[in-house]
Each structure stands twice: as C-alpha cells, then as structure tokens.
Simulated assay, not measured.
Amino acid sequence: MNDQNQRTYASAGIVWYYTQLNQLQPAEQVILDRFKPQLSSMRMLDIGIGGGRTTNVFAPLVKEYVGIDYSAEMVAACQKRFAKNLPSLALEIADARAMQQFADDSFDFILFSFNGIDYVPEGDRLKIFEEVKRVGKSGGYFCFSSHNLQGLQKTFSLKASMSLNPLQTYVNLVMLALFKVLNPTVNAHQLATADRLIVRDESHNFRLRTYYIRPAAQLKQLEPYFYNAEVYSWQSGRNLSTQDALVQNEELWLYYLCQIS
C-alpha cells in the first residue's frame, strides 16, 4: 500500500467499520459452499483480514487458520474480537508482498478478499502473486476479489448518474464531480480503452488510490502464476464462464478463483 492507503486503514473510524462486518458476499458464499467438504483438511491463509469478517466464517471450518493484515490496528481489533471464542487463533501483522515468515508450499487455500489487492501499485501486485504462488501448495487454491474497470467506466458516465429518485441523482452527480476533480488526468477515452487504471474512487470518501482492471486483462496477468482461473459475479456469485459474460459485466468488482502452479 502507499502511505495514504496505509494511514487510511490504520484510522480508528475505518478499523471500527470493518469490525462491524460479518456477512460473506455472494461470490464468497458460493466458493465456501464449493469447498466446504474439503475445508476440514485444509491449511488456510487469509490475507487482509481487516476486522475479522472472513475470520469469523472460515476459522472454525478449516484444519488450520492463519490470518494476516498489513495494518497493526486491524490485527489488534481482530484479536480483541475473537479473544473469547477463538483465543489461540493465529493472527499476525504481515505484508502480502513479502511473507518471509511462511515456508514454501505451506497453504492449501489462500484468500485475499474485499479487494485488498487493489491498494498497491501494479509492480507490488505482481509481487503478491509471486508470494502467493510460493507459500501456496501446488494445486492449491487462491481466491481474491478485484475492482472491475468496466464497472468504473459505467459509473463515470452522466447517463448512469440519473435516477428516478431526485436525491439519488443529486448524490450520484456530486460523486461524479468529485471523481473528475480528484482524477484530472482520467477521461472517458482512457476508461473506454485502458486495460487497467489506478484512481482515487469513492472508497472511504476518496481517501484511497484503487486499482481497476478489466477481467480479460486480469486473467492474462494471472497466467504466469496460476491456472484454471474462474471469474465470479460479486453480486450473484454466478460463474462468468463465457467471453461474452466477461466483456459485458459491469459490476464494480469481481471474484477470481484459480489454482496455484
């Protein structure tokens, strides 16, 4: 993460926000259901645990659970949250770009949820893939979510800001105006033609610089490290198994599930 992103995730209000979250997203639930028969035999690494949203669900189900986060404040909040029910839970401060504390081939299942991978520059993103490939077992699974540039392209348009609700239209137009002011070099042509962009979006009141990528470009980016990559709708959990489904999808983020080479 860059310094601004790091400071955001360390702030008390943001930490509190993440400790209030409990529910899996639809795509996460689909993936949980798929692996549920195997989880009891899996060693799991949960990257970017935040306030413990996924810890709450996965830790009781897997053979061994290790949760990490870049933010010491998030880890402390998570430890406090589970001190009574899961007192021996393994939670650590760690950076996904350099996980030297873990040996090669350590984990059967690695999760990096809530688009946490989108808050580092592209070079660091590739370092994360390299580290996941190293600490994950060959044939094991890596699941992560990432922002969809096609979704950003849709929300950037004036037409998409219009609503039958005048108040909602006003809010949408204010957000669109703020986006344009805070990203003066980003224009409609870039959004339509680029494979990936890093922008200041509305996440936590435009405090974060966020990485957006088209699904086809994301699949290409994964090829040196993983295989059998699948893409899931964030909102419905549907497997987007055709090229048309990938190209036409305009959700703001998607889930990727792949096997480790």
Rank of each mutant, 00 (worst) to 15 (best):
Q168M: 11
G151L: 06
Q25F: 09
Q218Y: 12
K63F: 01
L61H: 11
W253Y: 15
M74P: 12
A194L: 07
K159H: 11
A216K: 15
R214W: 06
Q248I: 05
K63W: 07
D118P: 02
F109R: 06
L158Y: 11
L158N: 06
S157R: 07
G116Q: 10
E122P: 00
A27H: 11
S11T: 11
E122Y: 15
I31W: 05
T155V: 13
V30G: 04
S138I: 07
F102R: 14
S41Q: 15
D124M: 10
V15Q: 08
L21I: 05
D108K: 08
T155L: 12
T242E: 10
L91P: 08
Y170L: 10
M42L: 10
Q190F: 09
G51N: 14
L191A: 08
Q150Y: 13
Q29S: 13
A98M: 05
T155D: 11
N2D: 14
G51W: 11
S88P: 01
L149N: 08
Q25G: 02
T242W: 14
W253D: 06
L197N: 03
L246N: 05
V174M: 08
N228M: 10
Q221Y: 10
K127N: 12
M44P: 00
W253R: 08
N2G: 06
Y17T: 00
Y232P: 02
T19F: 08
A83S: 13
Y232W: 01
I14G: 05
V132H: 02
F179C: 05
Q190D: 09
R134A: 07
F102D: 01
S113H: 13
L182V: 04
K63T: 04
S161A: 15
A96Q: 03
M162K: 09
S163C: 05
A245G: 00
T155P: 01
S233Q: 06
A77I: 08
A83W: 11
Y65C: 09
L254E: 05
S163L: 00
E92S: 10
V199G: 02
S233T: 03
D108L: 12
A12G: 12
L86D: 03
L257R: 13
L173R: 08
S106G: 09
